[in-house]
Structures are given as C-alpha cells and as structure tokens.
C-alpha cells in the first residue's frame, strides 16, 4: 500500500468502557460526572476527528544493532534488532488521530481544563493505537500469510527518538498531515510511527509488557488492577 487511508472514528469502535478502563476504572465504577464527560468527548471525537494511516513496504538489511532501508541507517538496540532478525521486508508506517484531534486538544489546553484535557488525551491515545491496529490489519491482508513482527517505534524499547526524522525521510512529505519538529517529535501528538519486520522466520508478537523495563507504566498499573 502506498496510499493514505482515511478512516472514520466509528470504524475504530472505541467504547466509553474502553476509555474508562485505560483511565484505571477496571473494578471500580467512575463518578457519573466522569463517565458523562467520557461520553461527551467520545461524541465530540465522532464529530471532529479524522484519523488516517499509511504504510509502505521496502527491502532492507538488519544486523546486530542496525537497520538499513534505502540507504537510511537506523541504530537500534539489540532487543529490537534481535526481534527484527530474519525479516525479509520492512513495513514503515504512521497512524494518527489527525490534525482535527490536535486542534481541539490545543483549544482545551488553552482553556486550562485539565480534566477534559486528560480525558481527551486518553481518547487520543486510543484513537492512534486503534488506527495503528487498522493499519496492521491491512498490512496482514497485503502480505497474506507471511509472518510479521510487532510494531517498533523511535523513542521506545531503546530506539532513540532522534531517529524519527530519518524514518520520515523514507515516507512521503507531510504524510497524514504529520510534521516532525526539531526535537524529532511528531505533531499531531497522538501519532505513531515505526517499522514492522516481515518474513517467514520472524518472531511474531514477541515484544510485550513482559520485556519492557518501564516499572511504572500505566499499562502495567492497569494490568495489576485487573488481577
């Protein structure tokens, strides 16, 4: 695929219980005020948000700590490099909650309503990740039965965020309306980017919380609450 896919917010099927769970309400019910606010902002998202994604598949070479695609070189840590080992092709991707999401985020931020901003932020994380899942589904269709790795992104798992700019050199200019600033950060904020290894011999879905070194991550906190 070399085209930008625009998807509807509805197709992401994000429910208020999904959002509340991500906020920590696993066993405990939220105050009515909070659940009403989540419902209200989900409705708002349905009206204004325009998520999109893009991926392209390239040849590349993977070594013990480096990945090279179309003469652009990435320094990875050994964990990611090991997981990408045996990849024959590499999918470079982005997925974003979109410019419209960001504009409303900026409005809330300016208004200084930290509670609304927090709920909107959680919804944005959900949109970007769900959009990434949609992208992955389309990738799976395109590569048929070939195995693929999990998604790896600059800034995570020891891959330096500075390499984000290099990743975008391999993507169409301004893809999905995403800009990378001088600190190598994406704008809209709720965007994801990265690489997926494709090949018969790759380890699939191996990287997860059990390998992550973050002790205080919210995902671990929610898992703990679920037990």
């Amino acid at each position: 695929m070399n085209a930008i896919r625009r998807i509807s917010f509805e197709s992401l099927a994000i429910s208020s219980s999904d959002v509340l769970k991500l906020m920590g309400y696993v066993k405990q019910s939220p105050d009515a005020f909070v659940s009403d606010l989540v419902d209200e902002l989900l409705l708002c998202a349905a009206t204004i948000v325009k998520p999109s994604y893009y991926f392209t598949i390239s040849d590349g070479d993977i070594s013990a700590t480096q990945l090279s695609i179309n003469k652009v070189q990435f320094d990875l840590n050994s964990t990611i490099a090991t997981l990408l080992r045996n990849s024959e092709l590499f999918a470079l991707f982005v997925a974003t909650a979109g410019v419209e999401y960001q504009e409303y985020h900026n409005e809330l931020s300016k208004a200084g309503d930290t509670l609304m901003l927090y709920v909107w932020d959680v919804i944005g994380s959900f949109i970007a990740e769900s959009c990434g899942d949609k992208m992955e589904l389309e990738l799976e269709n395109e590569i048929a039965d070939t195995a693929h790795t999990n998604r790896f992104s600059p800034g995570y798992c020891g891959w330096n965020i500075k390499e984000q700019s290099q990743l975008f050199r391999l993507l169409p200019n301004g893809v999905c309306g995403i800009k990378v600033n001088e600190s190598s950060l994406m704008y809209p904020i709720k965007s994801i980017s990265g690489v997926i290894g494709i090949g018969e011999g790759v380890d699939t879905k191996k990287y997860g919380c059990q390998f992550c070194e973050l002790k205080n991550c919210y995902k671990k906190r929610i898992k703990k609450l679920s037990i």
Binding site: M23, G24, Y25, Q28, P30, D31, F33, V34, L37, T114, L115, Y118, V119
Partner: peptide, 8 residues
C-alpha cells in the same frame, strides 16, 4: 481513586 478524582 483515579486521575480524574485527583484532578477534580
């Protein structure tokens, strides 16, 4: 208690 409670 959760983040929304703290913020409120």
């Amino acid at each position: 208690a959760f983040v929304p409670n703290l913020l409120m």
